[in-house]
Amino acid sequence: GSVVKEKKEKALIEVRPYVEYYNELKALVSKISSSVNDLEEAIVVLREEEKKASEPFKTDIRILLDFLES
């Protein structure tokens, strides 16, 4: 629970300088966080969101995924 939350919060802070739609990304992460149990599940849902998103938000999600998977 809290470790996953920390990882996601740290990821958002780390990617902030590189993303165009930070507030939207943060809102998406919050929405996903409330419906998943762990980081792996969150990553799966983020990948689905990435497929549906259009640029440049798609790239923002990709940047976040790269950080979460590192």
Rank of each mutant, 00 (worst) to 15 (best):
R16H: 07
S54F: 11
I63M: 05
L12T: 01
A27L: 11
R16Y: 14
I63N: 01
K10I: 13
I43D: 01
V45I: 10
V29T: 03
G1F: 00
T59W: 14
A27G: 04
N23F: 13
F67R: 06
G1I: 11
A11M: 06
A42N: 02
V3R: 06
Y18S: 08
V19S: 02
S35L: 10
R62A: 08
L65C: 10
Y18K: 13
E6A: 10
E48S: 13
E14P: 02
I13L: 10
I43P: 00
E50G: 08
S33Y: 15
K7P: 07
V44C: 11
L68D: 00
E24I: 10
K31P: 01
K51P: 02
A42H: 04
E41R: 05
N37W: 14
D60F: 15
K52S: 07
K5R: 11
S70W: 13
E40R: 09
E14C: 15
D66V: 13
I13Q: 13
V44H: 10
S54D: 05
Y18V: 10
V15F: 02
P17A: 07
I13M: 12
Y22L: 03
E69K: 11
V15S: 03
T59A: 12
G1Q: 12
E6M: 03
D38H: 06
R16V: 07
D60H: 08
I32S: 03
I43C: 07
S30V: 09
V4Q: 07
L25P: 00
V15T: 02
E6Q: 07
N37S: 10
P56S: 04
R62V: 03
L25V: 02
I61T: 00
K26P: 00
V19Q: 02
V15Y: 01
E20G: 06
T59R: 14
G1N: 11
K31H: 07
F57K: 01
A42D: 04
V19T: 02
D66P: 01
E48Q: 14
T59M: 12
L68G: 00
A53R: 05
E20V: 15
L39G: 04
S54T: 09
L46C: 02
V45H: 10
G1R: 03
D66K: 14
I43L: 11
V36I: 06
K5I: 11
D60V: 13
A11D: 03
R16P: 14
V19R: 01
K8V: 15
L12D: 02
V29W: 15
R62N: 06
L39F: 10
D60S: 07
K10V: 09
L28Q: 01
A42Y: 12
V15R: 01
L39S: 04
E20T: 15
L12N: 01
N23I: 13
L64E: 00
A42F: 15
D66I: 14
E49K: 04
I32R: 03
E48R: 14
E55P: 05
V15L: 09
S70K: 11
P56W: 09
L12H: 01
F57C: 01
E9G: 04
E50H: 12
I43R: 03
E55S: 05
L46P: 00
K7C: 15
R16K: 12
K7L: 15
E55M: 13
E55D: 07
L12P: 02
Y21G: 04
S54E: 06
I13D: 13
Y22C: 04
V4L: 14
S35H: 10
N23P: 03
V3F: 03
V36F: 05
A27R: 04
K5Q: 13
Y18Q: 13
P17K: 09
Y18G: 09
A27S: 07
K26G: 02
V4C: 15
L46S: 00
L25G: 00
A11P: 02
R16I: 13
E55H: 08
Y18M: 12
E9L: 13
S35C: 05
E14F: 12
E14T: 07
E20L: 15
I63D: 01
K8Q: 15
S2A: 09
S54W: 12
I32M: 04
E55W: 12
S34C: 05
I61D: 00
P56D: 02
L39M: 12
E50Y: 14
E50K: 10
D38Y: 07
D60G: 08
K51A: 11
E24Q: 11
K52A: 10
R62P: 00
E20M: 15
E40Y: 10
E41Y: 05
D66Q: 13
I13C: 13
F67N: 07
L39V: 06
L46R: 00
E9I: 11
I32V: 09
S54Q: 10
P56Y: 04
R16M: 13
V36S: 06
K31E: 09
E48H: 13
E48M: 14
E6C: 15
N37G: 07
S30H: 13
N23L: 14
V29D: 00
K8M: 15
V3W: 03
S70I: 09
A42E: 06
E48N: 12
E14R: 08
E40T: 09
R62S: 06
L64T: 02
I32N: 03
V19P: 07
S33K: 03
R62C: 07
S30E: 14
K7A: 14
V29S: 02
V19L: 04
V29N: 01
K58W: 01
F67E: 04
E14N: 08
L64R: 00
L39T: 07
L12F: 03
N23C: 12
K26V: 15
S34G: 08
E6H: 04
E24K: 14
L68I: 07
E9S: 05
I13N: 12
K10D: 06
D66L: 15
A11Q: 03
N23T: 09
K10R: 11
G1C: 14
E49N: 05
V45A: 13
Y18D: 10
V19Y: 04
E49W: 06
K8I: 15
E55L: 11
K31G: 05
K7V: 15
E55K: 08
V45L: 14
S35V: 11
K10Q: 13
P17V: 06
K7N: 06
L28A: 01
S34N: 10
L28E: 00
S2M: 08
S34V: 08
V45D: 05
K58G: 03
V29P: 00
I61F: 02
N37F: 13
S35G: 08
I61E: 00
K8R: 10
S30Q: 11
E24S: 05
F67M: 05
K8D: 06
K10M: 12
L68T: 01
L65W: 02
I13S: 11
I32Q: 02
L25H: 00
R47P: 00
V29R: 01
V36K: 04
D66C: 15
S35D: 08
L64V: 03
K26I: 12
K52M: 10
R47L: 06
E41W: 05
K5E: 13
D38S: 12
E49M: 03
Y22D: 01
Y18I: 13
F67Q: 04
E6S: 11
F67A: 12
R16S: 05
T59E: 03
K51Y: 11
E20R: 15
Y21N: 14
E24A: 11
S70H: 11
S54L: 07
L28R: 01
E50A: 12
A42G: 06
K51V: 08
L64F: 14
L25I: 03
D38R: 08
E14M: 12
V44M: 13
R62M: 06
E55Q: 12
A11K: 02
F67Y: 12
E40G: 09
V19F: 04
Y21K: 11
R47V: 05
F67H: 08
D66N: 13
E24M: 13
